[in-house]
Amino acid sequence: MLTPVKSLSAKTTRSTLGRTESGPVKWVLIAIALVFLAFVLLLPLACVLTTALNKGLAVYFKSIQDPNALSAIRLTLLTALVAVPLNMIFGIAASWAIAKFDFRGKNFLLTLIDLPLSVSPVISGMIFVLIFGAQGLLGPGLIEHGIKVLFAPPAIILATIFVTFPMVARELIPVMKAQGSEEEEAAITLGASGFKTFWLVTLPNIKWGLLYGVILCNARAMGEFGAVSVVSGHIRGQTNTLPLHIEILYNEYHFTAAFAAASLLAMLAIVTLIAKSLVEAGMHRQIQLSQSDNGEK
């Protein structure tokens, strides 16, 4: 009884002491962080919005509704719509394999999953040029059969999948590892099939981690520039995604139009941040639950 009381009081004294002593230091640190944030994040965001709107709302909406802009938005959405679900499935499968089984080459697989994060996106794009280009590995055969991959949506989607595939898996592996496989084993001994076990036991346990991974994956898929730029061919109205469209507009001095399109991506970022913090709150709740689950005997 004595020990906890003692440690508690010691802790309180230490933290109050810390607070009074480091008061100025604390404010200086907060001020630095805020100033830095204002310059690096808020100022650019404000610039984007003011430049986008500096010729009035009419021009803003006109530049967004330009056929080329609409086509870029459509291609961006299509890319995300294909890449995100595929990477979700891949992410679940890979993290399931890594977290719940022991097999030869597990570390190699982990390294492979991280590969897209460690390679420059330009190189990621080049890989697809080497594979699907006219002198590439598969390119000539495919072109013979009338299938165009490079400088067309398929290559854009493939490059996006490649660049974003670690996002879901990296979020899920630690979650699944922490949960172990006892609940799944219990479900199987109770007569559940593999699918039912996954659907009724595994999925509810990983849903927050999965959602988090999907949000990050989506943000990256919609915003990817480097790899997509290499494989797209920049054909206006056909193979430009939103980030590529912005670049072209900017290079041609259509600042208002460029920033209007950029404001869409900025809004996507803000929505992502809000969704992310909501999901984080959910994850936090779940972690607390499982902690009280372990802590209490």
Binding site: E182, E183, E185, A186, P204, D293
Partner: peptide, 12 residues
């Protein structure tokens, strides 16, 4: 019927 050391109840 299998009973686990750490219960393995479905937490959700």
């Amino acid at each position: 019927g299998f009973v686990f050391q750490h219960y393995a109840l479905f937490r959700h």
